[in-house]
Design a protein around this nucleic acid. Structure first.
Lengths: 173, 173
DNA sequence: GAAACCTTGTAAGGTTCCCTGACCAAGTGA
DNA sequence: TCACTTGGTCAGGGAACCTTACAAGGTTTC
């Protein structure tokens, strides 16, 4: 270990002052920093009424229509929690529900035109921020960060990683 | 970008299915994975009544005694919130308050013997987990992760980084 | 084809964790 | 001394989750 903080850590532990030396603490800080910047970018869009909680829906919902249950499973939340968020986003005009033609119990959830645009802007914002980090800290380092995080995600929580991660060969068009 | 997920991302966006492609999503996953493992390690100690919320105190408090206000500033929370957590940890026997001899308004907060041991075990657990990650994903990659995260923390939230990070030259013993 | 069982979504209510506002007691400075 | 600041507590509230219970619609079994 020859990091900047490594030396400080010795010093800190010696005088009984820990703080900020753990890896997750540093990661929390980095994640939080990115979310803060993200919210700043969001404020320059027409979609300022989207709250952080809504992210768990925008992250997974797509145009074809999804069931509440699937959304909840992916988000790792209960149906009730996601249901409330979906109600909220419906009220705000980002998503809409319509009956599932194949199952009278179920409703399908999909983005409205406004919702699709908001999602597009959201993902674009994250790409922008990743590019900014690449600029600021080195493209190779950020690329390495991404691949490392992918490896960790695959190893540690494969269930949280949907079929996305190991894509089947695309069907010939 | 030549990551595993990059290809999946193309695929996913093409069919309108985002999910898990952003950097913070991956980081959240990694952080959460580490906290889960941490809690598992904690369960093998006598200190199973320590909840995640208590971390914001254990992370910063040290043996010499600190004021609530300082603790709150470092943790980025209000005095009231930290006050409640401190009450809780006092009830559980991890920390204790005693009057500040230099200021009759203030009380100093410090770890009890039990608290010191719990903190020691906690930090040791994080070191263990970091070592496990190094074993699993490559020591060089984890070291690079740490230095990158430090750079990001310094650049993005210097205020959250206490004097620790830029240590003054240690006094000659 | 009816009974038993599972799934989808909703309703009601609770917990945790954090906040704001108001306040007192003690220190600080003109 | 009088205003102002600072350390900490009290009271109350809200956001984001959860659990329990249930109704309506599918599915399975014989």
């Amino acid at each position: 270990m020859d990091s900047k903080i490594a030396a400080a850590k010795e010093l800190a532990l010696a005088k009984g002052d820990p703080s900020l030396v753990t890896l997750p603490a540093l990661m929390d800080l980095a994640v939080e920093a990115m979310y803060v910047d993200f919210r700043k970018l969001l404020e320059e869009t027409p979609y300022t009424d989207v709250r952080p909680t809504h992210g768990c829906v925008f992250r997974f919902v797509h145009g074809d229509g999804m069931r509440l249950t699937e959304l909840a499973t992916r988000a790792g939340l209960t149906k009730q929690s996601v249901g409330e968020i979906v109600d909220d986003l419906t009220r705000l005009g980002y998503i809409e529900r319509f009956p599932d033609p194949t199952d009278k119990r179920a409703k399908l959830i999909r983005l409205t035109t406004k919702g699709l645009d908001a999602q597009r802007l959201g993902f674009a914002a994250f790409e922008t921020l990743e590019a900014e980090w690449a600029e600021a800290f080195g493209a190779d380092r950020i690329a390495a960060l991404r691949t490392l995080l992918e490896d960790i995600a695959l190893a540690k929580s494969p269930d949280a990683v949907p079929e996305l991660v190991r894509p089947e060969p695309a069907p010939v068009p």
